[in-house]
Every structure is written in C-alpha cells, then in structure tokens.
Computed example of a mutant assay.
Amino acid sequence: MELTALGLLVLGLLLAEPVSRALSAAHWPARDPVGALLFWQAVGLAGGLALLGSGVVYGLAPLGPTLSDAVPNAVDALAEGELGLRLGLTHVLALLAALALALRLVGVLVAVTVRTLRARRRHRDLLDLLGTPWPAAPGARVLDHPVPVAYCLPGLRSRLVLSAGVLDALDPPGVRAVLAHERTHLRERHDLVVLPFVAWGATAPFVRGMVCAQLAVAALIEMRADDVAASRVEPAQLTGALRAMGGAAPAAALSSFTDALDRRLHRIAAPPPPLPLGVRVFVRLAALALVAVPTAALLLS
C-alpha cells in the first residue's frame, strides 16, 4: 500500500502544479472548449482524489494489505481506543494531513458556495425591484442605465439582465448575440463548472497551477458561450456587440481585461480549426481515464 500511496501523491502533485500550469498555457483548448472543460474537471477531481487518497492509503497501511481490509480494522481499532497504538507516528500524521486537506477543501467549497448564493439572492431581489421585464426576451430584465452592460444571474430562479444602454448601443442582431451568449451560460450552468475551481484556487492560492486552473476554466466558458452565440448570428455582429460592451469598461480597468477581450474578438473573427474528431474523442477518453486511475488505485490498493 505504501507504493500505491506514493504513486497517488506524485499524481496529485503533478496535476495540481505542472500539469495544471501546462494545460492553462496550451493552445488546443481554444479549438475544443467543451472537451477542455471536461478535461479540466477530470484534472480537478483526479487531483483531489489522489492527494486525499495518498494520505488515507499510507496512513492505514499497517492495518491491512489492502484498503478494503484496513478500513474495517481501523474502525475496530478506533472503537477499542487502540488506533494510535497500531499506527506509527508517520502514519498518524498522514491521516491527519488527509483529514486537514479534506476539511480545507470542503470548508472552502461550502464557504464559497454559501457566499455566492447569498450574494445572488440579494442581487436577484434588487433586480426584481429595479429591473423591468422585457417582453421581447422572456426572462430578461432591463435596467435603466446608459452604460451598455449585460450579464446573467444563474440559479434556480435565474435572471438575464440588460441595461438600457445595450438596447441603445446595439442593433437587433447585436442584442440577439448578447442574449445568446448569456443564455448559454445559464443553460449549461457554467456557474457550477467554475465554482469548484474558484474553491480550489482559494484553497491553496500559493500553488500557481491551481490559480491557473481557475483562470483557464473561466476563459473556456466564455469561449464556449462565444461559439454558441457566433452560431446564431454573424461573427461580425458578435464582435461588434462585444466591442460596444467592452468599450464601456472604466478607464481604470486592468489591462488583462482588455487583453482577454482582444483574444476573444480575434478568436471569433478568425476561429481556429476544430480539433479532428479522433483527437476530440481521445480528449474525452483521456479525461475519463484520468479519473479512473486514482479511483482504481484506491479500490484495488
């Protein structure tokens, strides 16, 4: 079991740092945002399983040749008050480290989720008070504000929001492009896709790879929404709408925002060729295999 624990630890560390950093800098995800999002989710899930599993497997190694044998023995030893006596110091420390990591991951995820849900509820209440339903787009609300702004508020009672400035600045195709983009976020629940990575990045902000994962996933969901919107209207209409929206950014906006918008505009105007079908299938199979590796190691160790 010690070798299995070592392998899981190495896998988890690789996924958390060099693999995440390299994947965030790769060019192929822009050619297959859906596949890349699936692969990122596999990286996060496999990395978490590997890091947590390594501590558990190593910590319980003295109690049995396999994890399925060691767990019942650990329960019995704990009930008898002898768990610490039957484990060495390093094994106890490994279990405590796994427990601390699990509590940290779950605690941050719960805290981020609760904070997000509360903010959405307050925001939704304000929108219902200040926004005006727009009959031309069921479910959309218009805010009386001259700056062109559009966004969605996801959740069970989602909201799609446009400012009056959007309707003044954009022609009907541009408005349709904006609506298609935001509705893609709502329909595909991109908020749930990005939320674990927000928590992951907050869990260990000193690990650059985990922060890169959060930024890369956020960029990919925008690519995906852009692709859907570009399939509903002419790409030029979408880029024109994004320019109008981006032009409303404050002068103090970070240069990274402008750089990200420029990259999106260039990708819409000159879309990269999609990955060949065989490669897209391989990406999805690789994501499945990546999750299967630590799962199988834990079940068979």
Rank of each mutant, 00 (worst) to 15 (best):
residue 160 L to Q: 12
residue 76 D to H: 01
residue 64 G to S: 08
residue 94 A to G: 02
residue 143 L to V: 12
residue 94 A to I: 04
residue 85 L to P: 00
residue 123 H to S: 14
residue 78 L to C: 03
residue 140 A to E: 05
residue 35 G to L: 09
residue 94 A to L: 02
residue 77 A to V: 02
residue 50 A to D: 05
residue 98 A to D: 04
residue 73 N to T: 12
residue 155 G to A: 14
residue 33 P to T: 08
residue 101 L to M: 11
residue 73 N to P: 02
residue 26 A to V: 09
residue 134 W to E: 15
residue 67 L to G: 10
residue 100 A to N: 03
residue 79 A to F: 01
residue 98 A to Y: 03
residue 142 V to W: 05
residue 50 A to V: 05
residue 95 L to Q: 00
residue 100 A to H: 07
residue 54 S to K: 07
residue 80 E to F: 00
residue 71 V to E: 12
residue 103 L to N: 01
residue 133 P to G: 11
residue 80 E to R: 00
residue 72 P to D: 13
residue 87 L to R: 02
residue 54 S to N: 13
residue 110 V to M: 13
residue 88 G to E: 05
residue 59 G to A: 08
residue 84 G to F: 00
residue 100 A to M: 08
residue 105 L to A: 11
residue 88 G to S: 09
residue 40 W to G: 11
residue 152 C to Q: 14
residue 66 T to W: 12
residue 113 T to L: 14
residue 97 A to C: 00
residue 128 D to P: 04
residue 112 V to Q: 12
residue 147 V to F: 06
residue 120 R to I: 01
residue 48 G to Q: 10
residue 90 T to D: 11
residue 153 L to C: 03
residue 130 L to W: 09
residue 55 G to Y: 01
residue 65 P to K: 07
residue 27 H to Q: 12
residue 118 R to V: 15
residue 155 G to H: 10
residue 103 L to Y: 01
residue 87 L to C: 02
residue 48 G to F: 07
residue 27 H to W: 12
residue 158 S to R: 15
residue 133 P to A: 08
residue 41 Q to L: 07
residue 132 T to M: 09
residue 53 G to H: 05
residue 71 V to K: 02
residue 134 W to K: 02
residue 125 D to S: 11
residue 43 V to S: 08
residue 128 D to G: 15
residue 67 L to T: 04
residue 75 V to A: 15
residue 75 V to F: 13
residue 116 T to H: 10
residue 125 D to A: 14
residue 85 L to E: 06
residue 96 L to Q: 07
residue 147 V to S: 13
residue 27 H to D: 15
residue 73 N to W: 00
residue 140 A to Y: 14
residue 156 L to G: 10
residue 158 S to C: 09
residue 69 D to L: 11
residue 55 G to P: 01
residue 150 A to S: 03
residue 121 R to A: 11
residue 46 A to I: 09
residue 51 L to D: 07
residue 63 L to I: 01
residue 99 L to F: 13
residue 26 A to H: 08
residue 62 P to M: 06
residue 137 A to G: 03
residue 71 V to T: 10
residue 92 V to W: 02
residue 129 L to W: 11
residue 72 P to Q: 09
residue 130 L to N: 08
residue 88 G to T: 04
residue 117 L to A: 14
residue 115 R to L: 12
residue 72 P to A: 05
residue 61 A to H: 11
residue 26 A to I: 06
residue 133 P to I: 02
residue 121 R to C: 03
residue 127 L to P: 14
residue 103 L to K: 00
residue 87 L to P: 03
residue 135 P to E: 00
residue 96 L to M: 13
residue 101 L to N: 04
residue 86 R to A: 00
